[in-house]
Each structure stands twice: as structure tokens, then as C-alpha cells.
Write a protein that binds this DNA or RNA. Sequence first.
DNA 1: TTGTAAGCGTTATCAT
DNA 2: ATGATAACGCTTACAA
Lengths: 322, 322
Amino acid sequence: MIKMKEIAELAGVSISTVSNVLNGRKNVGQATRERVLQICSEYGYHPNLSGKKAKSANSNTIVFVFSDFDRDFYLKIIEGISDCLTENGYDLMICTNKSAANFMRGSLASGAIILDGSLTDDFLISVAKPDFPVVLMDRIIRNEQAETKSVIVDNYPVMCEMVQGLVDKGFKRFGFIGGLDFTLDNQERYAGFTDTLAKNNIEFDRKYYFHGNYREKSGYQAAKIMLLSNDLPEVVVCANDNMAIGAIKAFEENKIRVPDDISVTGFDDSVLAEMKGLTTISIPRYESGYLAAKELLAMLEGTANKEPFKLGATIKWRKTVK
Amino acid sequence: MIKMKEIAELAGVSISTVSNVLNGRKNVGQATRERVLQICSEYGYHPNLSGKKAKSANSNTIVFVFSDFDRDFYLKIIEGISDCLTENGYDLMICTNKSAANFMRGSLASGAIILDGSLTDDFLISVAKPDFPVVLMDRIIRNEQAETKSVIVDNYPVMCEMVQGLVDKGFKRFGFIGGLDFTLDNQERYAGFTDTLAKNNIEFDRKYYFHGNYREKSGYQAAKIMLLSNDLPEVVVCANDNMAIGAIKAFEENKIRVPDDISVTGFDDSVLAEMKGLTTISIPRYESGYLAAKELLAMLEGTANKEPFKLGATIKWRKTVK
DNA sequence: TTGTAAGCGTTATCAT
DNA sequence: ATGATAACGCTTACAA
């Protein structure tokens, strides 16, 4: 690893001249500039980022934290983030929750985008400062001190719309398989569900609420439990696709046909949902990543409000609903 | 961001004492140690990694580079890498090809794992030095100077085994949809295919080789072309699942039933393959990531040979083969 | 246009 | 047991 000092010696100039050349400052003679550049490429010089950052806290790198390896749409989100950052001259560095604290606190990056439930609110509040803004995806932290901004799916209205659609189709007996109770997503989705039923004077007995954890298996198990009772609902609304797919599997194993005997809906529009023909709600993943990055850059420039940004979603009616 | 200097002042000790406490050195009095630790947690001190690295080039972080956002098995590989590194006290930092040069050359990391076709051999050779070893996944670079090690799927024997299986089932007229010609994977898979046919005295007319690029669409198009001729093969062996799925789609659109009229096989065992009941070859993803990380750590310790590490794969006979 | 020197937040050596 | 002090590789006033 050749360093600036050696380049300077080879070029017969001072270290600061090399630095000036490399940073494109104009106070360098044409001849010197070319000579330095020539030597740099000849010897394969590349700046040591640690040295750089040690001095000018301005790192131009953003960290993205995730950790649930089961959600296949991470890649699309990352692609959106990556594109936006690249367009703006920033580097993206991705890590899992395990290294998050190190990278977020070590001043290697200038901001972070979080799509992870395992980092605590307290931790996030402690790192999200004006000089290290944080964008939260699918999550909201209400704290005046913390420099956070949320980018979330606007679950409520689209869930209302879908449930209203189901009501209009004539469904009366509903079941609901929920995700993790404490997540914002689940709360809003469930609220849209119950509110719409209430509005239509359809009673929802809480015994038809089944607790899941967003994984396929939990949907499968919820459906298994449902099957034990003698009165299945006419339609099961699930808080995400994975659970819907699990539920369908359980029904089919028990000779309950979807949608003939029971209808099922999901949320997310994952690859599998499309494949299975699952009625669900489609979220703009790439766009959400792009937007999250854009908001973060705005925060870095001080031009951003802290109101949650709500992403619209759209219903995909497919064949799992009669 | 409070720094060591301020902690030192608050504790009424010198900066070096704080450093000693933080790095668990034993040359510090019990009372001092406790006082310093207390103040650190009280003021939320966290070391600045740039400062750290500026001094002691030993970073304990590994970078993983990928960039094809269409391959759904990245996450499993990352999980494997992440687990191995975490167990060994390393941090994982993931990036796409766009930032790869920065992170690999900036001395932020001590080694890299590459799963990306867009980084050139030349680039990789230029960074892979004894003090910055590189593990390549699904790719081999033969260069004595470069400190690289490959972790690859042992395509050949398993492909032979599968094709032999097909021959044993009585298939005689084969088609092959290849991936990108220059990739090692494609070359080995195709070699296993032709060699096995030759061994069984089955002639393979090169006109039944179709060029694809590993994407679903290219498989679809290859099948479309096949359909134009009047003699379809009895079985189409594809270099990966995506293309196999595309081909199946094309066949079904043209009322050619799989497997009744034509059999199809893939390679990878992706989520979709399982879903579609595609006969394919399963690669141990999590394990391959774990192993790649393990090999990298071994290189870092100087205990590793440079022979490619070959991962075994297994056939999954499913319903797309008659 | 170019160079000198101070400083970034750490670690490590060597006195004390 | 503790503290000066140099050093890491770079940037940036400021001086020449």
C-alpha cells in the first residue's frame, strides 16, 4: 500500500501538493498535477480512508442495517438505496444488527438507514444526532431529541380499501392472522381491518384473531388451529404474504380448497405471492429504498422535516379470493 | 460525540490511561479503571474507528461484495458469512460493486469476499495481497501473485450424476440452455452434460445448445426458439433455475405440457424451483457463505492453501422430469 | 504555485 | 500505576 508521502517523494513535491491534486483543488500547476497523477496511477495509489476520515469527519458513506434474512425483498430496497446514493456521490455500506453499533458509532459513516426490529429505540435515539441523521423504515420513534425520520408504508387506507372490497363481494365472516403485535405495520393493518368491518356493521369476534410472527410457519399453525374449530371464516386476512402462504398450505393439506371453500389475502406482494396467485397488497420496494436514501441526504443538508413519509400501496386482486 | 481526551479530563487522568482501560490492559489501578469506565458509560463514549484504524491497521472487519439484485439466495449466503465472522469477533460490511473499490482499497477492512461478476480479474488481482486476502465465490482467478482463494460449487460431478439419471430413465434427445458462456459455472455444467452423454454414446447436436444469460427471460426466449423447430428434445437441461422456469413458462404457453411432453431441469434450487416442483440441483448456500468466511480468516492467519474449495451439491428429483 | 506545520482520535513506546 | 510523546495517513490554514 503506497501512501501519499511516497508519492510526494517520487514526484519531488510536498505531501500537501499531492493532496491538493487528488482533491481536485485548482491551486496546482498543470505540469505538477499531471506528474503527480501519472505517478499515482503508475504506483497504484489509493487513499487510505481512515486517514481521510480521521481529519475531515465528512465521510460520504451511509450505512444500511437489516437483519431478517427471510424477507426476500431486501434486495430490491437495497437496490433503490444504492442507486440514489450512487447518483449523489455517496457510498453505501450494509451491515447486520451485529455490527450496527460499531459502524454507526465509529464515525465511519455520516448517517444510517434502518430496516431492523432488533435495534432498540434507546440505541437509535442515542446515535441519531443532527450530525448523524437516521432514517427508519417501517418504524417510528417519537422523540424530539433524536434526529430520525420514518419512511413507512401507509398501511391503513389500503387495508381499509381491501377489506371494503371483500365486504362488497359479500364476505361476512372474517378471520385475521396478525404479525408481531408490537410492530407498527401489524397495528395499522389490523386497525384498517377492524375499522372497516365496524363501519360496515360486521361484527368481528376477537377469537378470530390469530397471533403470528410474519413467518410462513406461524401462518400455517394459525390455520391449523382454525381448522380445529368447526366454523371456519369465509375469508382470512393475513398481515403478510408469508403467513398467508403458510395458511393456504395448511388449508390445502386438509382438503379445504382456496378460494372455493375459503378465501385468503396477504400483504407485501412477494415473489411467492405473485407465483401463487395470492390476493395481496403491493408495496413499492425499490422506490421505498430510493426514497429513504433521498430523505437521509436531505437531512444531511438540513432540508427535511421530521414528519413520517408515507408510501402508497396498491391492491392486487388475484385468485385466492373468490 | 465525546472523545477520549474529554473523558481523560473528566476522570482527571491522561489520555493513555483511558486508552489502557478501554483496551483492557492490566497496567491500570482498580480505582482508576472503575472511574474511567463509569465516566465513559455516563457520557456515552464510543471509540472513533477512524482514529483507531489510522494507528493500528488491524481492523477486524471484512467486506462482502455482491451486486446482482436478482439472485434471491444472497441473503442465505450473507447469513452464513455473518455467523462465521461474528463467532470470530469480526465485523461484516457488505457493499455493492459500486463502492467496492473504495472499501477494499481504503484499508477499512482486512479482507474481502467477492460474489460479483462485474469486478474485473485485474482489479481483484491488484487488491488481493497477503495483507488483504480475498475469497472468491463461484469464480477462479489463476494468478500466483494474487492472494485469492476460491470457494466454488463442484458442478461437474453432480451434473454428470443428474444427466446419467436422465439417461437411465430412457431419455435420448437432449437440449441444453446455457448461462453466460464465460462463467466457470456454465462451463463446468455444460462439460458434465456433454461428457455424460458421450459416455453413454448419445450424440448431442450443438444446434440443441441455446445461449442464455441466467435470467428467466433468456430461458423463455430459448424455449420460444426451440418451439419453432419441429423436433423438440425430450428433456431440456438448464444451467440454472431461472432459465428453466422461463422455459417452462414458454412451453406451457404453447400447450406443451411439462413433464408429459417435455421434461426440464434446473440448477440452484431457488425458492421458486421448490415451489414449481422443478427438478434441480441444490447448493448449500448458508454453508458456502460460512465456509468462505472461514477460509478468509484462515488466510488472514496464514494457515490456508490456495486450492479452490469445492462444495458438494445434491440432486432434487421433482415433478418436471417424467 | 508550492511547502510548512498543526491537527484529526486513536495506540504504543518509553519514561517516570 | 500513570503520563508525555511520537506516530498512523491524511487535510487544511497559512506562509513563502
